[in-house]
Amino acid sequence: MASDTSEVMLRATMLEKHFQMGDTVVHALRGVDIAVTKGEIVAILGASGSGKSTLLGILGGLDAPSAGRVEIAGVDITKMNENELAEIRNKKIGFVFQFFNLISTLTALENVELPVQFSTGGQFSSRKRAEELLALVGLQERLRHRPGQLSGGEQQRVAIARAMANAPDVILADEPTGNLDTATGESVMNILFDARRETGATLVLVTHDAQVAARANRTLTMQDGLLV
């Protein structure tokens, strides 16, 4: 658990999530408590199906819990409506996924611009910000390329730049190296950690990779929907 003296950026209390799959009810989360302080890097390990990605999704406001609450910078997001959640995802959170999840019809630059363009009253000029971030991840030469024209590592770097676009408080990364070879994975992680250091954001990442987990301030393990 994080020390009480630090400012808590992300807190989840008694989180539960149940799915109906056919005739059976799947209990993906069964009362998870977690608190992550500002600037902290937390790695979540666990077997497939243990509930890691579900937890990450709920922490990021992508899904609603069946029970419990989630607070980001002290604000309860579980009671928010869809529009308010979209605002939180846009301004407070950056996501990095295993399969990059870039929009195939947009160029690297346009993909990174997207969150800035969706934000209302944002602090950045979308084009300038996107160019800066793509330069930060080493893709200044690939601005006009579409995802299909980029390698896996490059796509993940675009995804990292996109996650940083609105300078979020929290970055949530779901197995960011899971679809990359070891060398590329390491390089991507370096970029992710460097970017986090630059912004001072809180980073929660789900991984199978012990080496990646070792670089975190704290490692948590999930099993059958519970943090153990």
């Binding site: 999840n101 195939s104 969706f118």
Partner: peptide, 14 residues
């Protein structure tokens, strides 16, 4: 997937 992604990065339903 694209729609979900747009929403993930902050696009509202409208």
């Amino acid at each position: 997937r694209e729609i979900a992604l747009m929403k993930t990065v902050g696009a509202k339903a409208n």
